[in-house]
Nucleic acid binder design. Structure first.
Lengths: 236, 236
DNA sequence: ATACGATTCAAACGAGCGTTTGAATCGACC
DNA sequence: GGTCGATTCAAACGCTCGTTTGAATCGTAT
């Protein structure tokens, strides 16, 4: 269907004009971030990208496939880097357990690197990803499950060794909580206008540095026991 | 525009047939949960509710207003109950500080009560709410900000007294993380298919009982300092 | 030069959308 | 029993959507 880098004749040949597929992906990343998947039309998308309306269906086949391409372009390398970082930690540590902090940092650092690259919209992508987590569309849910399965399983095993006081089930829930806080934070929707005195969101690094101690403490917390159950129910 | 409970003549007068406005709200709650706001059409919504297509615009004015009505019907009472619970805690404690656990429980318990009421879709609503947190539509964001402002500010002051080692800015971020984990968990999107060995989602109570110790530990964690900053950046 | 596959383009397709309209129908009241 | 406001109803409005089509145009190899 597509191979060489030809075509593109209508628009002025800027120095900042990559091929059509990339222009579509860049515009889609930006607009999906601003308005979400359903609320972004292919007409405004192709207009923003400076390409013809039919280009999306020619190069990607459908709007759904385009959205998956937007996600996989950055998500797959990020998760591969996460797995590689964890592998390096494990190799350096021999058969000794790794600390909880270092495992979590290995998860956060690739996301931080993505948030840093200003030239190509890493921050835009993280917002799109944060919203995709909460999107009910089945094709999005299945896609994310497949993309995350390997990375999550590798990290779950590592955390299990680092947090021996947690059962596998307990850890599953805590990783769920970690992913929730992380995606909500990276998406940065400012839902509750909490940024009254906080600097603008251009400082993802400081944000993750605040998130890390919070998550580490939560992961290290004692496991649930029956005494605590009664506290919650009848505590008030 | 609307006042008495008259009308309704087309459908059989079941015992389970409240007035048109309520039937619309119930169907909307369910469908907004399943497909999201944008992907739910008024045609499928009114068909599911067993009412005429024009009823939504007659009773609510527009689809936007209907969505806000779906949210406010349950969110406003829940946040009022949260404020009342915190007020009761503060009255009982006199001028002594309240523990972090009790403040957090006062936030969680109204949500838990909503998740429990099976007859009228409390769980459905919590999923809708979790997704609304991540929705980019401006009218949703403004609505949620207004609905949450009072509750969040009251709790922030309470947490500030319970956690004196945290600056106001640090606490703002931590409450952001708490809301992230909470909304993600309540929305229960199972994004990462983590429920491999976990019981089905009908047990919100056990879920919140696992979430509480995680969040308490995160809130109580030491504040960020410069030593930790260096760890994160050059730690790997 | 010519032929060819890849790509771009303007235009249209059918479907579905939120909303509006105006008549029909209801319960309530004089 | 007739009037009135509230509600329901079927039908249509204008519009936008994702997708398809077929011709025009490109770079490239013959």
């Amino acid at each position: 269907m597509a191979a060489s880098r030809t075509g593109r004749r209508g628009l002025p040949p800027d120095a900042t004009s990559p091929d059509t597929k990339t222009r579509i992906l860049d515009a889609a990343e930006l607009l999906f971030m601003e308005h979400g998947y359903e609320a972004t039309s292919l007409r405004q998308l192709t207009a923003a990208a400076g390409v013809n309306l039919a280009s999306v269906n020619y190069h990607f086949g459908s709007k759904d496939v385009l959205f998956q391409a937007v996600l996989t372009r950055r998500l797959d390398p990020m998760n591969q880097e996460r797995i590689a970082l964890l592998g390096k930690l494990e190799r350096d540590a021999g058969d000794k357990p790794i600390t909880c902090e270092r495992i979590l940092f290995a998860m956060l650092i690739p996301a931080l690197k993505l948030a840093r690259d200003e030239k190509r919209g890493g921050k835009h992508f993280l917002k799109v990803l944060g919203r995709a987590y909460a999107d009910p569309a089945p094709f999005i849910r299945h896609f994310l499950s497949a993309q995350y399965a390997e990375m999550i399983n590798r990290y779950k095993e590592a955390f299990l060794r680092a947090l021996p006081h947690l059962s596998r089930q307990e850890l599953t829930w805590r990783l769920h909580f970690v992913m929730g806080a992380l995606s909500y934070t990276l998406a940065g929707t400012d839902a509750l206008k909490m940024l009254s005195q906080v600097a603008s969101t251009d400082n993802e690094e400081l944000m993750l540095q605040r998130l890390a101690p919070f998550l580490v403490a939560g992961l290290k917390a004692p496991a649930l026991n029956d005494t605590r159950k009664l506290e919650l129910v009848s505590g008030l």
